[in-house]
Write a protein that binds this DNA or RNA. Structure first.
Lengths: 349, 349
DNA sequence: CCGTATAGTGTAAGCGCTTACACCAACGAG
DNA sequence: CTCGTTGGTGTAAGCGCTTACACTATACGG
């Protein structure tokens, strides 16, 4: 089924059919109906490759993420996709699994497909790529990496402030031994996070002791990280995770070892994924407004949006969300206080 | 950057460049090198739309799912994608949100993009679409719906048997009041599941009382479903969920109401998503081998696979996975037994 | 009644790529 | 020395679509 078949059946030229389908130019009403009918009868649908080749309306965005399995990325994707659909756009999504090499080939794939906008929401870096993309004039949104330019919008989360609040909060609760669990610490944006934790913690030195470990992103990685800490001899009263997804595994490991959270050990995440309030104990975390990020991406990438136009740098703030997984540090004296605090908190909610 | 630019720079014709890029035909070794160098220097990457239009090697698969947020679907996608990448394929994924209308437009989009194979892993139905797809000669894999034909591979999970085992197991534990939580029960494959539960339960009538409710897929839906049951007056000793994703929310609601799982109420899921063993209590569920499904799809869709060729109907069996969320029904007499059983089970693991 | 805008439609030139076919050189067999 | 044969390359015809441009009919003011 091609445009020509439709044209023949409707007894018009392919140009007219195209005009009808794309809703451009002047076409007599009766002709429109005839064409539409032919389209129906033939169950015609356009060959998008041909359309894009011919320079037709390009309504597809690309989005590249590091790990679609992590709800953080998935949520952004879903928000963007919903916005995009509402405007008649499709969005192609691709995974890099935190591999810079994969990022390169994925970007090429997206460009090769001719997306009209690209969101790069990854935690790995590839300077040459970022440069290349900057030099093109394709609308691009970077998350966490790169710098704003004419065609580039930049979204950065104030991770430092979030981490600051978490450590501060924990310290205020009496925690003096904290462990940090991260992943892929060889990747810059991710090692930055670890470094941020360390720097923030350093402000409380020497009273605050810290330890850091790294594993894979996800519950299993979190579990492994927790094991590593627990067998190291270091006895943290609080475990700070680089994200909620990993914290899930930490919670599990603690549960299996009969270490009560938060009575004996407090746990924090980051991101505030939906699951954070569905696990038990519900996770204390720093909220990153993923929906807002999704919307911002849509506005930057879809022309005609009233949104923050291209070439801006947007800073996202986080907010601390205290739930059940944190409590005053477990000292003999404070144990009881911890329990009652928790009770009070629950009653309040 | 087009093929022509590369050709000019390498001082050959576009045909030769194409041959080099696609690794077909005879090309002198020195020419290959010259072309490759030009490609590098120009940072050329092919316009995939043009390539597909011209009938070039089409290495992209499409996958349509009902709810990417549900790890069940995501796992299948990830497995397929990994397999596909290994063979040089890309996979385009799209969501329907359980909307048949969305299914239609998504399929058209996939066809319009010219995918070389399509996996339809959805819980909604659209007979006309299924028929159309059957009539095309595009390799297609259906999950849960449709029937095997020349170009169609069919994967069906033996849901009934899984449900049978769950109900049987629960009944054996002494449960006599069970509630079933489903979602989208107006969609055929999903109402089938509810019906299956009811039929299986009917075998134990009249001693077994049941109740069913429906909400949205996901933890929030599960929570709502649990609330509905709990406020209805019906006091189930076991809650059977249509999938793990919803069970997560049930667990949460029970936790918030201080109803202990499994001591007071047992909960089961279905699918055995990764998270099932990371929540507390870990979820008893029926395992669906999602990785196997992913692999099967890859084998059916990627030519040259040694796998089960087209036109087959494949039946997937489930296995009961008993974890912490189920225990003997809570009667005054059995309460203690329940606790000790659980202890024993844990020590065993 | 003519000139000129204007609505409505057709013609045809690409978009960047693949590939059938044509072509040429080199080479061994006869 | 001539004739297939084969390795290596170029030429050009599309793939299905969009769109600039050309064209025809109709309407309308002068």
């Amino acid at each position: 089924m091609t445009l020509e078949d439709v044209a023949r059946r409707a007894k018009v030229s392919t140009a007219t059919v195209s005009r009808v389908l794309n809703n451009v130019g002047q076409v007599k009403h009766s002709t429109v109906e005839r064409v539409m009918q032919a389209v129906e009868e033939l169950k015609y649908y356009p060959n998008l490759n041909a359309r894009m080749l011919a320079g037709g309306p390009n309504r597809t965005l690309g989005m590249i993420v590091s790990n679609l399995e992590n709800p953080f990325f998935l949520d952004i994707f879903r928000t963007l996709e919903a916005d995009a659909h509402r405007r008649g756009y499709d969005v192609l999504v691709a995974n890099t699994d935190y591999r810079p090499q994969q990022l390169v080939s994925t970007v090429k794939m997206m460009l090769g497909r001719g997306v009209s906008g690209l969101a790069v929401v990854v935690s790995e870096k590839k300077p040459s790529l970022i440069r290349e993309l900057s030099e093109s004039n394709l609308p691009v949104v970077f998350y966490d990496v790169g710098a704003a330019k004419a065609n580039i919008t930049n979204i950065k989360v104030d991770y430092r402030m979030g981490m600051q609040r978490i450590v501060e909060y924990l310290y205020g609760l009496g925690h003096r031994r904290m462990a940090f669990i991260g992943h892929h610490t060889t990747l810059e944006p991710l090692s930055d996070r670890k470094a941020t934790f360390l720097e923030v913690a350093a402000e409380y030195a020497p009273r605050l002791k810290v330890m850091t470990v790294a594993s894979a992103d996800g519950p299993i990685g979190g579990q492994n990280g927790a094991r590593e800490i627990l067998t190291s001899g270091f006895r943290p009263t609080a475990v700070v995770c680089v994200n909620d997804f990993m914290a899930l595994g930490v919670l599990r490991e603690l549960h299996e070892r009969r270490i009560r959270v938060p009575e004996e050990v407090s746990v924090t995440g980051f991101d505030n994924i939906g699951l954070a309030e569905f696990v038990s104990p519900a996770l204390t975390t720093a909220h990153i407004p993923r929906e807002e990020i999704g919307h911002l991406i849509g506005e930057a990438l879809i022309p005609g949006s009233r949104g923050p136009v291209e070439g801006k740098e947007i800073r996202i703030e986080t907010t601390l969300v205290v739930r059940e997984s944190t409590a005053p540090a477990s000292t003999r004296a404070s144990r009881k206080r911890a329990a009652s605090t928790r009770q009070r908190a629950k009653r309040a909610s």
